[in-house]
Amino acid sequence: MKGLVLSALMGIAALAAVLVGPGPAAAGDLSPAIPQAKGTQCVEDTQVMRRNHMDFLKHQRDDTLRKGIRGAKHSLKDCVTCHVQTGTDGHPIPVNAEGQFCQSCHSYAAVSIDCFQCHATVPGAAKSASAR
């Protein structure tokens, strides 16, 4: 990424609220290094995702587990599928590993999530008739 510019900016600015703060241009430049996702479009507008992904996930969690609703767009499995990176060895890197998608911002913003104590961190090798 734009590594040099980014670190220079990060060095001089107090960045507390930048993640969810200003418009697209500024946020893009000042954010921590976030690995590029597969595809071109997230499940919601990028700005909305930055702000609200935790709420979407919590809704989806209850809808899927308690009501049995599958195939909905805020599935955690889907986040992992699109946002996982592939290592030089050709294997997927866990999304919560150092510098990976779900960890990059979180460590920057001092957020810690427990989701991946249980949830798979790489797309499922599920050969079965598994649903989302």
């Binding site: 427990d114 104590q117 249980c118 949830h119 798979a120 499922g124 090798a125 598994s130």
Partner: peptide
Amino acid sequence: QKEHNPRGK
């Protein structure tokens, strides 16, 4: 863990 059966301590 399997993707369809998240489980933890």
